[in-house]
C-alpha cells in the first residue's frame, strides 16, 4: 500500500543545492542509514559556507560508494577499495581543494584497508567518512571485517566467528589527527563532526554506525530500520575523549560514540615542503599543485 502525498509544485528538496536532483530517487533501501548520513554531510557543507566548487567527493564501491553519484560536487566513483589513493592523488594535485572520501566499511577497511592505514600514517589532508553497517550490503549481506562476533550474515550463517576491527582505534593508531564516531541517529552531532573533520588539516576520520534494515537487521532478526534507530537511541554512550582501545562494538551491546581524538600534526604536504626546504634552501621549488590554473 502506498500513500500519495500531495506536494505543492514550488516545493523544493531542502538539500537541492547539494544533490544531483536529476539522479533522485536514489537506489538506497527505505530506512537505510545513508539518507541521514548524506543529509548530515550536506548540512555540514552548507553550515561551513565553503566554496562548493572547491569540494570533491570520492567513493569506492558498495551502497555507500554510490554517494559520489548523488552529491552535486566534483565527484568520483572509483574502484573497490581504491577511493583513498585516488583521493590522495587528487588532493596532492589540488591542495586548495577539500577532498572527502565517502565510502563503506567493506570498501575502506577490508579491500582498501592498506590504503586507509597508510594514508592516515602520512597524514594526507583528506576527510574519510566511513559508513559502517557491519555488512557487505550491495552484494547481499556478507560478513565484513566490522561484523560483530556472533552476528549472522549471508556468509556467516551460523554467526560470525572472527574478531572485528575497532575502526577508531585503527584510525588513531595509524596516524589520523581527528577521529569521531556517531550513529545515523545522531544527525546534529554527526553534522558537527563532519564539519570539524572537513575543517581539520590532516587525515580526519568519522565512523558512522548505520542501519542496514534489508540485510543486517533481517538476517539477525533485529526488526526494522526504526527498531535499529531505537536501539542506537537506547544504547549509544557519548564519551568524548574515550580511550580508543575501549570502543569496540560488540553484537547488540553499548555503542560508545563521541569525538575521540583531535590533535595537531603536520600534514603530508607540510612535511614534504619542510623537509625539502631544509635540504635545498632557496633552490627548492615547493609543490603546490596547479591552484586551479588549468
Amino acid at each position: 500500500m502506498s500513500i500519495q502525498v500531495e506536494r505543492p509544485a514550488e516545493e523544493k528538496h531542502p538539500k537541492e543545492k547539494l544533490l544531483r536532483m536529476d539522479r533522485i530517487p536514489h537506489i538506497w533501501c527505505p530506512t537505510c542509514g545513508l539518507g541521514t548520513t548524506v543529509t548530515a554531510m550536506a548540512s555540514a557543507l552548507e553550515q561551513l559556507e565553503l566554496d562548493l566548487n572547491n569540494v570533491a567527493v570520492v567513493s569506492g564501491i558498495g551502497c555507500t560508494g554510490r554517494v559520489a553519484g548523488y552529491m552535486k560536487l566534483d565527484s568520483f566513483h572509483t574502484t573497490h577499495g581504491r577511493a583513498i589513493p585516488f583521493a590522495l592523488g587528487l588532493q596532492i594535485a589540488r591542495p586548495d581543494m577539500k577532498v572527502i572520501v565517502f565510502s563503506g566499511d567493506g570498501d575502506l577497511i577490508s579491500i582498501g584497508g592498506n590504503h586507509f592505514i597508510h594514508t592516515a600514517r602520512r597524514n594526507v589532508d583528506i576527510t574519510v567518512i566511513c559508513v559502517n553497517n557491519f555488512i557487505y550490503a550491495m552484494t547481499g549481506g556478507q560478513v565484513a571485517p566490522t561484523t560483530p562476533i556472533t552476528a549472522r550474515t549471508a556468509t556467516s550463517p551460523f554467526g560470525n566467528y572472527e574478531h572485528p576491527f575497532n575502526l577508531p582505534l585503527l584510525a588513531a593508531s595509524s596516524g589520523a589527527v581527528y577521529v569521531a564516531r556517531w550513529t545515523a541517529l545522531h544527525i546534529r552531532r554527526l553534522t558537527t563532526a563532519i564539519k570539524e573533520a572537513i575543517t581539520k588539516k590532516g587525515f580526519s576520520f568519522v565512523e558512522v554506525v548505520a542501519p542496514c534494515s534489508t540485510l543486517y537487521a533481517r538476517l539477525n532478526k533485529l526488526g526494522t530500520g526504526l527498531d535499529l534507530m531505537r536501539f542506537y537511541h537506547d544504547n549509544s554512550v557519548i564519551k568524548h575523549g574515550a580511550d580508543v582501545r575501549e570502543v569496540d562494538v560488540d553484537y547488540q551491546s553499548k555503542i560508545v560514540v563521541g569525538k575521540f581524538l583531535d590533535i595537531e600534526k603536520p600534514t603530508y604536504i607540510d612535511c614534504v615542503n619542510d623537509g625539502n626546504k631544509r635540504v635545498f634552501g632557496d633552490k627548492y621549488k615547493p609543490y603546490g599543485g596547479n591552484h586551479g590554473d588549468n
Binding site: 570520492v58 568520483f76 572509483t78 574502484t79 581504491r82 583513498i84 589513493p85 585516488f86 583521493a87 590522495l88 592523488g89 587528487l90 588532493q91 596532492i92 594535485a93 589540488r94 581543494m97 590504503h115 599543485g289 596547479n290 586551479g292 588549468n294
Partner: peptide, 11 residues
C-alpha cells in the same frame, strides 16, 4: 589509483 586522481586534479 593515485596517478588517476592526480591527473583529474590537472597534473
Amino acid at each position: 589509483g593515485a596517478i588517476l586522481g592526480a591527473s583529474w586534479g590537472g597534473v
